[in-house]
């Protein structure tokens, strides 16, 4: 009997542990700008902003890949849709961040609903490949969109404003806006994965057949998750465009989609904290190795191969094996 109560209590304790880890992460991030200024390295603020932008993207992918077992190889398309929403709207004279976010999410929801409905007809390798195909379609659409710079991309006149205020102009404003959105996305996904909807999604991941047997049709749940993930990833795209003040189709190349999967697998699939950690580590590795050598991709690639071969479960798996975290799946 005690065994049973322990089994029942464990997930709750595990979740609380993971939440604590995430809160620690946010607290550390919040003090990055003052510390960077104190250390005389303001460049670190920009790097940390990029990390958080990709953390949002990785979180959104984790909802479908980690919780829904839908391996999308075209998730970067939503990054690009968000970025191009900023470019198109600012060209039309609308440079309010809120409006741009809404437009980006609406466009992404539409794209995700249509492509998701088609993609979800397939399974396994075919799902991976059809999402890749839709990602490439979006990529080539913007590559040949010559009024928006085509292949070369387009520089934005300025960063977006928030309710008329130029809050994003400085590196610090950009940083804290990104942090705020990251916390919001994390909180939303944390609630969502614990809700009834999240439970059904996770159940479908474990066994679609059993979920059907107890009366749930997986498709509406999977499609809804797919649409939500697309919307949230476009938020990262809006931020990425603002951070770089530049938009290009390279944001949605298949390399980016692959990199997002890499982030998740590095951090540990199916854990929101792991997704964020994976994004932070990936960008840190890239930036760190790039400072060290022009041929940083060699080292980065070797790290990825080594993790895949010797550390199943990514960072969470490593921490668990080292005994630093209990049950951090």
């Amino acid at each position: 009997m005690t065994d049973l109560t322990q089994t029942l209590a464990r997930p709750r304790a595990r979740l609380a542990g993971r939440l604590k880890l995430a809160l620690c992460l946010f607290a550390v991030l919040a003090v990055v700008p003052p510390l960077a200024h104190a250390a005389g390295e303001p460049f670190l603020i920009v790097v940390a902003t990029r990390m958080m932008v990709f953390a949002i993207a990785a979180l959104s992918l984790d909802l479908i890949l980690g919780y829904g077992a839908m391996v999308s190889f075209g998730h970067a398309a939503y990054l690009g849709l968000g970025a191009y929403a900023v470019a198109i709207l600012s060209r039309a004279g609308i440079d309010d961040l809120v409006l741009q976010l809404l437009a980006a999410m609406a466009a992404s929801a539409l794209f995700a609903a249509v492509t998701g409905a088609i993609s979800l007809r397939t399974r396994g390798v075919y799902f991976i490949m059809i999402t890749l195909a839709f990602g490439q379609m979006a990529f080539f659409f913007f590559v040949s969109f010559s009024t928006l710079g085509g292949d070369d991309g387009v520089a934005l006149p300025a960063r977006s404003t928030v309710l008329g205020l130029p809050l994003l102009e400085g590196a610090q404003g950009m940083f804290y806006a990104t942090l705020a959105l990251l916390v919001a996305v994390f909180a939303g996904l944390y609630r969502l994965t614990l809700s009834r909807f999240g439970r059904v999604l996770t159940g479908t991941r474990e066994s679609a057949l059993r979920m059907q047997a107890i009366g749930f049709r997986p498709f509406p749940y999977q499609l809804t998750a797919y649409v939500i993930a697309g919307c949230l990833c476009s938020v990262a795209g809006v931020l990425l465009a603002n951070q770089a003040i530049y938009v290009s189709p390279a944001y949605m190349s298949w390399h980016r989609s692959g990199e997002m999967i890499v982030m998740l697998v590095l951090g540990g699939v199916g854990s929101l904290t792991g997704a964020m950690a994976g994004a932070l580590v990936t960008i840190a590795l890239e930036e760190g190795l790039a400072r060290f050598s022009d041929h940083w991709r060699l080292g980065f690639g070797l790290v990825l191969v080594a993790v895949a071969l010797f550390s199943p479960g990514g960072l969470s798996g490593l921490l668990r094996r080292l005994g630093l975290v209990r049950d951090a799946t």
């Binding site: 590095l266 060699l298 690639g301 990825l304 071969l309």
Partner: peptide, 24 residues
């Protein structure tokens, strides 16, 4: 070493190999 692993581990390793070999 990867035949019995999940698709995700395979994507991670072969994506890494793409980076390594292109850079080489």
């Amino acid at each position: 070493r990867l035949y019995d692993r999940s698709h995700l581990d395979q994507v991670l390793a072969t994506f890494g190999l793409v980076l390594v070999l292109s850079e080489l």
